[in-house]
Design a protein around this nucleic acid. Structure first.
Length: 451
RNA sequence: GGUGCGGUGGCGGAGAGGCUACGCAGCGGAUUGCAAAUCCGUGUACACCGGUUCAAAUCCGGUCCGCACCUCCA
């Protein structure tokens, strides 16, 4: 068995994964801000890191996987429009968990909520002020980026560049342009918490640092998220944690998934080119698994282009595999699949190996176990098959048997005319049923299946 | 402008110095009254120009093109 290799954004290299404690792996992935439905792009990290979690659970004794819920944020306040933000956040947290479950993503071990960590964030912020890395100004608390020598190690930026490339509108309370908010004041009608700096709420980056410290300590094995979080979000998390922890690394391995694209462009809210998982599941009921497979057909660091055609193609392939593994007991994941995954989570290669396994009569148990390693073929029973709306079950059976009779007569017919007549009737029935979405399959033994 | 990631057969998509995946579609065949399914066979592609090498899609230099981050974003 070869060792797990992971591409590390910190070094821009593929490295051997070296756990802090091989008996207990720690992983933290940035989760959603719950103010709206998640789109398919938001689902990509969920599926990617769920797959990694499955591998880690297979290869190591124990994994604790955390994914946060950001349930305090200006967008949420906006969405609540003066109402109780908990209504919004509860609603969308529930939708998020349902939609991700439809993609066969297991729940992480812990899903900390920002609002439950406000005290810890206040402690962290106070510590940063004490250590001279943060300052209070105008009811805000800001992190002073220039106090950290190695700021920018993840994104390849330098403090000098950031100071030089000052944005057009630098907030008046900032000492320097790159400084970022750790705490901000709340007005009377905005949700807020009491703090040494008045009633207010935490800045976005603060929660992750606080949550990681409380649940895992100074340093975790893997920190993950989308490519767009590298800067500023993860960079600022690193700044907060390192400066508070005397320079200890926040995470040893930083992993970032690429984007889901639409016609080559990033799927995003601001571009308006997004489809929510919720909508998609309504459009393709029960195809969550096919959506998952689509997300895994490309390597996680590469872009993957979203298409409905891709979902249907994946579904077709899954159908074949389901059929092939009907009644088969899952055994052990194939080493080929495991090896592919251990090589920086090469899911496209793993899927290729699945195809190979499906060709081997003797490895169906492995095929099933391997597919499940990827979160696929988890359904226990095959589709019961829905019945057409306009036709009762008995009507279909009647038509199928009428066709069988016509077919039979056609085969036995003496004259050419007779034969054509009967076959024409048989084909007519096939066409009629096809229009209702019912497909007929003649089997070699003379019987006919329909679905 | 800075930084990063890419450009592989009709499409999707691995590989990363020699053995040129895989899937879908296509084509040919078997089977079939028709259809589907299935099976067999079938594809020498790596943006461009130089260089290194016995050997480059893979390494080096340059060119062109695309995307992304630098502002909330998975």
């Amino acid at each position: 068995m070869s060792k797990l290799k992971i591409y590390n954004t910190l070094t821009n290299k593929k490295e051997e994964f070296k756990p802090i404690n091989p008996n207990h792996i720690t992983m933290y992935v940035c989760g959603p801000t719950v103010y709206d439905f998640a789109h398919v792009g938001n689902a990509r990290p969920v599926v990617v890191f769920d797959t990694l979690a499955r591998l880690l659970r297979h290869d190591y004794r124990k994994l604790t996987y955390a994914r946060n819920i950001t349930d305090i944020d200006d967008k949420i306040i906006e969405a609540a429009a003066g109402g109780d933000i908990a209504e919004i956040t509860n609603k969308y947290t529930r939708h998020y968990e349902e939609d991700m479950a439809a993609l066969n993503a297991e729940m992480p071990d812990i899903t900390p909520k920002a609002t439950e960590y406000v005290e810890d964030m206040i402690t962290l912020i106070s510590d940063l002020i004490e250590k001279g890395h943060a300052y209070e100004a105008d009811d805000h608390v800001l992190f002073q980026v220039s106090t950290m020598k190695d700021y920018g190690e993840l994104s390849g930026r330098t403090v000098e560049d950031l100071l030089a490339g000052a944005r057009v509108d630098v907030a008046s309370y900032k000492k320097e342009a790159p400084d970022f908010v750790l705490w901000k004041p709340s007005t009377a009608d905005q949700p807020g918490w009491d703090s040494p700096w008045g009633r207010g709420r935490p800045g976005w980056h603060t929660e992750c640092s606080a949550m990681i410290e409380k649940n895992f300590g100074n340093t975790i094995d893997i920190h993950g998220g989308g490519l767009d979080l590298i800067f500023p979000h993860h960079e600022n998390e690193i700044a907060q944690s390192k400066c508070s922890h005397g320079g200890a690394a926040l995470a040893n391995h930083w992993m970032h998934n690429g984007y889901l694209t639409v016609d080559g462009e990033k799927m995003s809210k601001s571009l308006g080119n997004y489809v929510t998982v919720h909508e998609l599941l309504e459009e393709f009921p029960r195809l969550g698994e096919a959506i998952r497979m689509c997300l895994l057909t490309a390597h996680y660091r590469q872009p993957v282009d979203f298409s409905r055609d891709g979902i249907l193609q994946a579904n077709k392939q899954l159908g074949k595999w389901y059929k092939l593994t009907e009644g088969i007991e899952a055994t052990k994941p194939a080493s080929e699949v495991l090896e592919s995954l251990r090589n920086d989570l090469n899911t496209p290669k793993a899927i290729m190996e699945l195809h190979q396994l499906s060709k081997d009569e003797n490895r169906k148990g492995e095929l099933l176990a391997s597919a499940r390693m990827l979160g696929l073929l988890e359904r226990e029973f095959s589709n019961p098959g829905s019945v057409g709306i306009n036709l009762a079950h008995t009507d279909i059976i009647a038509l199928v048997s009428e066709r069988a009779e016509a077919k039979n007569k056609g085969k036995l017919a003496e004259s050419k005319e007779e034969r054509i007549k009967h076959f024409a009737r048989a084909d007519e029935i096939r066409a009629d049923l096809a229009m209702l979405g019912i497909k007929l399959h003649d089997k070699p033994d003379g019987t006919t299946d329909w679905e």
